[in-house]
């Protein structure tokens, strides 16, 4: 568990806009190791999503170096090194749930038999086996988001990048999905980067919490969680959990006072 999967050194990203340059990211140094569950938390505009998009090579940093699996982020994208889960499920309405999960497999040229086998496997992983032939509109928002996670898992990339995947869901569904996500992480041993707004969610899920602050977007603090990997939901009532949540909140507050 020491191999660095993602290494960022002095990563910065400046957008040129009509109103002048906008520093979305500045001086980001971070090492993510294999099997880590890393949460990125911070207020809007702190660059957490931007950094995730840089790792996915959906944005290109203007400064610094960023490697994914030992290669450039762009090469990693072309090697299909990661699965990406967006804020919205973004399932194609004209494909069934099974068809949506098959989409990346078709694009990547898996054989028909392998496609069917993988679709069945990831649907079971997110407990949607009964819905393979349903259309997305027949599923609830939480189920759609689970299907989109299954889609990201289907081609077995080692890295899972998740951009506020549960942000639009209510708290009960969210708790349930958080639990499932941890179970899935334990079973698949993937490296997960997870962007969130929620302190309890970040603390509950992560082995490492990256607290970010805005203007310019940067890392304020990296908190290593001492919590065990096995986490029942009621771990959130333990003193250790509450203490880490406090540290995250303090980190966020420190970041905010900077701009005043």
């Amino acid at each position: 568990m020491t191999a660095a999967v993602i290494e960022a050194k002095g990563v910065g990203l400046t957008f040129q806009t009509n109103g002048g340059p906008v520093h979305a990211l500045s001086g980001v140094d971070l090492v993510i190791e294999k099997g880590d569950f890393v949460s990125f938390i911070g207020p809007s505009g702190c660059g957490k999503t931007t950094f995730l998009r840089c790792m996915a090579a959906l944005e290109t940093p203007t400064e610094g170096s960023l490697t994914v699996n030992g290669m450039s982020a762009e090469a990693a994208r072309q090697a299909r090194a990661y699965g990406y889960v967006f804020q919205a499920a973004g399932l194609y309405p004209w494909r069934t749930i099974g068809g949506n999960i098959r989409l990346p497999l078709e694009i990547m040229g898996f054989s028909k038999a392998e496609q069917a086998e993988r679709v069945a496997r990831v649907l079971e992983l997110v407990e949607l086996s009964k819905f393979e032939n349903s259309f997305p509109w027949q599923l609830s928002g939480g189920m759609q988001q689970r299907a989109s996670i299954a889609r990201a898992l289907s081609f077995d990339a080692d890295i899972l990048l998740m951009d506020e995947p549960f942000g639009a869901l209510d708290e009960i569904v969210r708790d349930h999905l958080n639990e499932q996500l941890l179970a899935l992480w334990a079973r698949t041993e993937k490296t997960i980067c997870f962007v969130t707004h929620s302190i309890p969610e970040a603390v509950y899920l992560s082995t490492k919490i990256v607290v970010m602050s805005p203007r310019p977007g940067r890392i304020a603090e990296v908190i290593e969680s001492p919590l065990p990997r096995e986490r029942p939901l009621d771990i959130r009532d333990t003193p250790e959990f509450i203490e880490i949540a406090h540290r995250v909140r303090d980190g966020l507050r420190a970041g905010h006072s900077y701009e005043d």
């Binding site: 090579a57 994208r77 072309q78 804020q87 973004g90 194609y92």
Partner: peptide
């Protein structure tokens, strides 16, 4: 977002 999703699969323009 839908276009980005295809980029993450490294899909070609034809795909």
């Amino acid at each position: 977002m839908q276009l980005d999703l295809l980029r993450t699969y490294n899909a070609s323009a034809a795909q």
